[in-house]
Write a protein that binds this DNA or RNA. Structure first.
Lengths: 159, 159
DNA sequence: TCCAATTAGATTGTGCGCAATATAAATTAT
DNA sequence: ATAATTTATATTGCGCACAATCTAATTGGA
């Protein structure tokens, strides 16, 4: 009750923290979806989904790598990667071959078409930059902060 | 070729932009997943998934609202919300009733159990804060930047 | 040597996320 | 008033994510 006798609910810190607007994770979650929607029409032209595009980015940097290696770079497990990689193989962008040295390992290599797709993909980042309406410097600064946060979260998970 | 005659590939801006490390969207994407993994054990105790938790947060702020309204607040459509809300209804946390004024509208209201769950949820944000290993001030500053970016991306989509 | 433990990847099942489409109710135009 | 359009929600289908489980290959002891 306040001095006028009207019921006034005290807003505690815990109450404030439960507000959607105050949650950084909702900000991150909803921004990830917004990015996805901006990427969609650009990636449709390449015949890729966003997670598939991430796999291709990783492979353009280094291919002939185990699924495990891709998983560590992208923070994804075999339950996600196995079917995704099979779809990329069906699209003839990658090849999956068992390692002869260790039969447990499946090595992922780009096909010539997979390599070639990189040229078409070069136009994508600058379209995203335009949509974000930021300078490269601003985006890189934000990226570094977000990555630092991600790494702290992952560190807690690793305990 | 450099001056010694050794083949040196020129790294163009487009090449740099395709590097995974340079992509803010991958930072956002992978941070969203990291958050999800930190939330998982906390939300398991409430019997909620992360998207369900977001819906509950929205409803704790204002319930007796159309599905449409929830969708706008959470940036989700009926294809996502309808089955999610049916699961929350099955868990007896919400009720779905057709509006009598407009038969097209389904109003979402919290049940007593739905309201009561809020008390248990109050412990969640501070666990997340601890995992993020940041001050509230730092997180809020990042949140504001990310939300600004999200809103610019969504503005482009709305054109 | 042989058995236990570990490791890489595949499989299954659940729950998003979203495009495309469907349906029914409400609104608008004629 | 009736037809055309718009609006709210539901449905279907596909592709992630990820937990849990499985199989097969490798490694590391006793």
């Amino acid at each position: 009750m306040d001095s006028m006798g009207i019921m006034v609910r005290k807003q505690t810190a815990a109450d404030q923290a439960l507000r959607l607007d105050n949650q950084i994770c909702f900000a991150v979650y909803s921004t990830a979806h917004a990015f996805n929607r901006v990427y969609k029409p650009l990636l449709d032209r390449l015949g890729l989904t966003y997670p598939q595009y991430l796999v291709m980015l990783a492979l353009w940097e280094r291919d002939d790598v185990p699924v495990k290696d891709l998983g560590e770079r992208l923070f994804l497990d075999s339950g996600t990667l196995t079917p995704l990689l099979k779809r990329l193989e069906a699209a003839e962008l990658i090849r999956r071959t068992r390692s002869t040295e260790d039969e447990r390992v499946v090595l992922i290599a780009l096909t010539p078409q997979g390599h070639a797709l990189r040229e078409k993909a070069k136009a994508v980042p600058q379209s995203i930059l335009a949509a974000s309406d930021c300078t490269v410097g601003e985006l890189m600064a934000m990226k570094d902060e977000i990555v630092a946060l991600r790494d702290r979260l992952n560190a807690v998970l690793g305990e």
